[in-house]
Design a protein around this nucleic acid. Structure first.
Lengths: 168, 168
DNA sequence: ACTATGTTTCAGTAAATATTGAAAATTCGG
DNA sequence: CCGAATTTTCAATATTTACTGAAACATAGT
């Protein structure tokens, strides 16, 4: 396979992959493009490679920066801005996990805390099932929360060697 | 908080949560409703509780069954079909992980294998960066794959005690 | 402080996704 | 095997989400 074709496939699949993970297609495609670009590139480069508008590039690159997955680079003597992505995949994963935990898991756990305190007769099976369900989800959620927290702080080697230890 | 209000909040938030995870809002809401229902319920119950159409209920309940998260229950002497959800949250998580791994991670790893074999001079920095990036993603992906496989087979107690061991 | 170059914003539009509702299909009891 | 009850399908529609393009804004060089 030629590089140009491989690039196309990588970008397009990374985009589709992203959509399953709450990241929009274009944002994921820009990210893919940055990942495989040896040097920083401009917004115009992205427009051309991905056939998308200037506004679209601009909005999505901003979002990538918010997520900590890309950075703006000013090259001396260059008028245009350049962009590059974090290439260390482990770091990328950690940043995504951190961001999504903050946006999704943490608020959910807060809500569950509130809901568990529902008033009513615990003998009533509707109340009982509700409280049990919420409690069980919370228990697992809390565990996931701790696990992710530690993972976010972890070194890659540390992570892999520990996982191998358990999951032989 | 009253049970009715708590139910509403749980359902609505579980729905919003689902949308971040590639599950559509209604499917997640039906799932939430089933989770907190002590006894199996009918499609009509769902239509009423969630204010959605018969067709919508039907399509989404089918999808839940595909995912292994709900089951159809025939009660003797009842004309209508009833439905209930798996209440063991750990099992629910494992089923979701299994399904998404099959749908997303496995195909991605297959693709990366193909892409890593791109032809071209490895001295060319474009080729070099591409191969390295793909290789790094593959490496982490393979590790995740193994980890998830083991998790899918794991007992909850086994999982939690192991996690606690590592992530004190 | 003017102008050319580059960036950002956002209202309007397009595309993708989810939902409805009614017709068709299926199932069950008699 | 008939008819009522129930479930399923799917074309039409509504809703949500993403994208465009042009105008407004910013910046740097002279």
């Amino acid at each position: 396979m030629k590089l140009s074709e491989a690039k196309q496939q990588f970008i397009s699949n990374w985009g589709a992959f992203g959509t399953h993970w709450g990241i929009n297609r274009t944002m994921a495609q820009i990210h893919a493009l940055l990942l495989i670009s040896p040097d920083p590139i401009t917004q115009d480069d992205m427009m051309e490679e991905l056939n998308i508008s200037r506004g679209n590039v601009n909005m999505n690159i901003r979002e990538l920066i918010n997520w900590g997955l890309a950075e703006r680079i000013i090259l001396p003597g260059e008028r245009k801005e350049f962009f590059s992505a974090e290439k260390d995949i482990w770091l990328v994963v950690k940043r995504i996990v951190k961001e999504r935990k903050k946006r999704e898991l943490d608020p959910m756990l807060q809500l569950l805390d509130k809901l568990e305190a529902v008033e009513g007769d615990k003998k009533d099976k509707h109340v009982k099932t509700f409280v049990e369900t919420v409690g069980n989800i919370k228990k697992l959620g809390k565990q996931a929360d701790k696990t992710l927290d530690t993972m976010i702080k972890a070194e890659e080697n540390w992570f892999i060697s520990n996982m191998l230890k358990i999951f032989k």
